[in-house]
Amino acid sequence: MLFYSFFKTLVGKQITVELKNDLEIRGTLVSVDQYLNIKLESVSVLDEEKYPHMKSVRDCFVRGSVVRYVQPPEESVDVDILHDATRREARSAV
């Protein structure tokens, strides 16, 4: 639930998603669900020369299970809030 909440704070922000097939997509986060499936709009593929597959796609759904990394914008990460939430979740998990 922690990262689900974290991603919800990134809705409307530009993120870069790297898939487990090495495809890197940049776009605006529209929504996220409990599986960390994500929906992006105004997407662009970072290496379009190598990956021309998405040239006619503007909005897309990415299955959470195929995500390797997500790069959030630097200014939208509040580390103090994250530390607190992580400690709280670690305590309640047991």
């Binding site: 097939n21 006619s56 796609v57 909005d59 897309c60 759904f61 990415v62 299955r63 299970s65 195929v66």
Partner: peptide, 14 residues
């Protein structure tokens, strides 16, 4: 399980 990504195709662009 076998779906990685679903994109909405802009038919005009396509």
């Amino acid at each position: 399980d076998n779906v990685a990504l679903v994109g909405d195709v802009d038919e005009e662009l396509d």
